[in-house]
Structure formats: C-alpha cells, structure tokens
Amino acid sequence: MSSPAILEAALYAEDLEAAEAFYSGVLGLEVVLRKDGAHVFFRCAGAILLVFDPRATEGQGGGALPVPPHGARGAGHLCLAATAEEIDGWRLRLEAAEIAIEADFRWPNGARSLYVRDPAGNSLEFAEPRLWFDGKD
C-alpha cells in the first residue's frame, strides 16, 4: 500500500465572505461548494481546501451522513507548494492586494517560505517543496 495523499484540509473562519474573497479573489482558487453561514470549499490543485464557520460546525456531524463532529477555534496553518519563481509572483500579487507579508526567508536547507495571514488570521505559507522533500518524492 502506498503512502496516503492529503485529499482535503480544513481552516476555520467566521467571515466566510472575506474568506471567499481572499481564497477565490486573491489566490484564484475555484469555489466548488458553498453553503451560506456554514462553509465554502475550494479546489487547490489535487486537493480541496475546506473553510468552515466554526459557529456552524462546532459539535455537529454531517447531518444525514455519518460524519463525526469536528472543528477548531483559533488560527490554523496551511502551506502551499510553490517554486522560488512562483513565490516571487505570489509576493507581488499579495502586495498588490494589500496583504501584509509576515515573513519571507530561507530555511537552513535553503528552501524559501513566504508567510501571510488570511482574513480570519490563519497562517498561510507558500514554500518550496524542498523544505520537506529532497526531490525523491
């Protein structure tokens, strides 16, 4: 059996309109599902980014489906893979959208990371895959 891949990841934001404006408008992710007051989901390469309003999902499961309750409060973190050149482009795009850059640096192994916050305060990182992978994966 091969190692599993991440299919979906979740962040939480009380202001879903601001989250959609950021992830769809600024980052260009495609909205695949929206339920007002509950969630907005985005296609992100080979995965789905789920953004839930924690007030709507806290303590609730999947309704008619046997999905167990899950959720979080407070700032989360998501890292998006990008080449060095793509990180330069993301920096320009984020600055043009007046998104503050929190950090832009190289790790001890030489990989570059760029950090910003989404409107809910979640930490969003753009990083070279070599941060974790040496090219063999």
Rank of each mutant, 00 (worst) to 15 (best):
S2E: 03
S2L: 15
S3L: 06
S3E: 13
P4H: 11
A5V: 05
I6P: 06
E8W: 11
A9L: 05
A10H: 02
A10W: 05
L11Y: 06
Y12E: 12
Y12T: 01
A13Q: 08
A13P: 14
A13Y: 08
E14Q: 11
D15E: 02
L16A: 01
E17G: 04
E17Q: 13
A18S: 13
A18K: 13
A19E: 00
A19K: 07
A21D: 15
A21H: 07
F22Y: 14
Y23T: 10
Y23N: 05
L29I: 02
E30A: 11
V31F: 02
V31M: 04
V32G: 04
R34M: 07
R34K: 12
K35Y: 08
D36R: 09
A38V: 15
V40A: 07
V40D: 02
F41K: 09
R43I: 04
R43Q: 10
C44F: 12
A45S: 12
A45H: 13
A45W: 11
G46M: 01
A47M: 15
A47T: 14
I48N: 03
I48Q: 14
L49M: 06
G61C: 02
G61Q: 12
G62R: 03
G63Q: 06
V67I: 13
P68S: 11
P69Q: 10
G71E: 06
R73P: 05
R73I: 05
A75Q: 01
L78M: 09
L78H: 08
L78A: 15
L80M: 07
A81N: 15
A81V: 02
A82N: 09
A84E: 14
D88F: 09
D88Q: 09
R93D: 01
L94M: 11
E95P: 02
A97S: 14
E98P: 05
I99Q: 12
I101G: 10
E102D: 15
A103D: 15
A103G: 09
P108H: 10
A111R: 01
L114K: 00
Y115S: 11
V116T: 14
V116G: 04
D118M: 09
P119V: 07
G121R: 01
N122V: 07
N122Y: 11
L124R: 04
L124T: 06
P129W: 01
R130H: 09
L131F: 14
L131A: 15
F133V: 03
D134Q: 09
D137Y: 08
